[in-house]
Nucleic acid binder design. Structure first.
Lengths: 205, 205
DNA sequence: GTCTATAATTAGATAGAC
DNA sequence: GTCTATCTAATTATAGAC
């Protein structure tokens, strides 16, 4: 029987992506073979090439899809630019932590597997990553202009904050000590500290 | 000629490790072949097996060597436990940043390639990593006891701080905007903020 | 200590049957 | 849309010459 009864392209396409994400997050892109992905999906290796022209494109599509969805999600419920920077930073941190906990595998892949992208694909993904970083930088700059944030070096504070916030995806476990919301609250506090928010200064006394 | 004149085992051994570190940092462990390493060293692939029983051991030895050296280096110039926590934190941050800039490749490998370690090797390396994390946790705990640090959640602050500090190895470039010492100084400031150090509170007013 | 040669396995990708 | 079969190339690791 060459075609399983009940088989359907779109469903398989989704399963291929899910299996690839799971396996790549666990073992790394280069360590995962097309045959492993196929086995996980329950098809033969050759069938995967109905859904991707090659292995490299599979990785690029996962990362592009993730980053575009991340940016779109933020746009969909970002505060408008007139809101105070401190409220925007809180909103951003909660968004970032929730998103990074909910989609830990894609997040993990998108920053661990940059090395495995070919030049052109790397450039595209890196552009998306940078536009996400700029969201933070913009909020920190606005807060300094408002006089509510006091950070010495905006660029370095941005890099430090992104690294700090994104780190959650390396250790979060569903059965961990804290529920996602409690984690987010603590990260909001720490983000305020890094930004030198005046509120925090008072709270620390 | 089966053996090159002037060849010497110890020198080659060092070259193998250096080449492996450089290539793995750039492309990832699974993506680097023994032949690539051999080519970089200037020997044939078979000759590598004089220095490592297999590819997996090569990775484990790199990571183990790095972490043991990291821990030893800290021990060698760690402040004694009687020093104020705030001074110990500053010393730690400067040590960490300098070390992570100087040995960026090994650092990078040791946290990117954990997935590629077999179970037993992973457990060993993970133990070393955790003992390094505990250094930070201990300083934060001591500072809270002294009343000079005010952080809400010691464990989470530790994780956030490690992630923030280690992030430097993902973006540092020798020809970048800031020299290592200036970077370290800014990270000391940010570490104090995260820890809720009183000094910083005053400075922010 | 290193080379050459090679065994054994596995990889990515394609062709053609159904 | 999927399978089976297969091509080609690359991989880890070993054996034996020098």
């Amino acid at each position: 029987m060459a075609r399983k009864s009940g088989s359907s392209g779109e469903k398989t396409r989704a399963m291929v992506e899910e299996a690839a994400i799971r396996l790549i997050a666990r073992h790394g892109f280069a360590a995962v073979s097309m045959r492993q992905i196929a086995r996980e999906v329950g098809v033969q290796a050759g069938a995967l090439y109905l859904y991707t022209p090659d292995k490299q494109s599979l990785l690029r599509d996962i990362m592009r899809g993730h980053l575009e969805h991340l940016l779109q999600s933020w746009q969909d419920h970002a505060p408008d630019a007139e809101m105070p920077a401190i409220a925007r930073l809180e909103r951003f941190v909660r968004f970032h932590i929730d998103y990074h906990i909910l989609r830990a595998e894609k997040v993990f892949i998108s920053y661990m597997e940059l090395r495995n992208l070919e030049q052109e694909n790397f450039a595209e993904i890196e552009r998306l990553r940078r536009s996400y970083e700029h969201l933070v930088e913009e909020i920190l700059t606005a807060g300094a202009a408002e006089g509510v944030f006091h950070h010495a070096d905006t660029r370095l504070t941005t890099l430090a904050m992104i690294a700090m916030l994104t780190g959650v995806s390396t250790w979060y476990r569903d059965d961990g000590r804290l529920p996602p919301q409690a984690i987010a609250t603590r990260y909001v506090d720490m983000a305020f500290r890094l930004a030198g928010a005046e509120q925090l200064v008072e709270a620390a006394e």
